[in-house]
Design a protein around this nucleic acid. Sequence first.
DNA 1: ATGGCTGGATGATCCAGA
Length: 278
Amino acid sequence: MRVATWNVNSIRSRVARVTDWLVREDVDVLAMQEIKCTEAQFPFDAFHDAGYEVALHGLNQWNGVAFASRLPLEEVQVGFASAPGFGKADATGALPQEARALGVTVDGIRLWSLYVPNGRALGDPHYDYKLEWLANLAAEVQGWLKQSDAPLALMGDFNIAPLDIDVWDPNVFIGSTHVSEPEREAFRAFEAAGLVDVVRSRGVDGYTYWDYKQLRFPRNEGMRIDFILGSRGFDELVTSASIHRNERKGDAPSDHVPVLVELQREAAEDDDDRPMIF
DNA sequence: ATGGCTGGATGATCCAGA
């Protein structure tokens, strides 16, 4: 099974690129971020025509997460219970929830499509929101791993460059979001909870994002901020991993590229393939 | 000059992205 994540930066302006890539790369399950639309606006037909069903969480023109899959999408969960909100409090004092997390189960594997808040600037309320969102999610992950032995992966745009090598020039980012120690500590909390970066651990190098401005892509001045973090059970299934840098080329690309892993079939399925003995 | 794109919503500019 081939599973990928991609911040598509508006699915409506990228639908042909995305479905073409899915078919060309024989992808079974794609986690998308920044679809930037509601369910009523989502281009379902293009995905159905390509052989994919879709589950999504989109509230407005901002954020938005989704899955496209050739296999049945089960146990769809919108958001996570402890996710903080952001914005203007309503009459009860509650902050609006944003569309940043979607969980599904595919063939017994628990997958999350995540769009971590940007943070905007150190000290900005959005930065505090980012850290709280990450801390609460890490606590949820600990619970999920205790509750279930099913392989689990967090996939998406984490908006954190965990290591200095994940940006082209650390000096440019001094005092910026994405590289601050609290953000990196928040990222390490997922590893402490038992998840592993299943792409980096297989020796795959390269950035996953290049700003549209300032010739960042031609200069290869990018950032590695999109990840697939798997539980031990998920990690054991991964047979290969890749970052699809070519998707930053050509007409109207997203500023992010897909990250893909291939999973071997689980042992239980292999049993089904044994010759029947009468 | 501290920018330089791009997308979405609203209606020539704003917000947001990282």
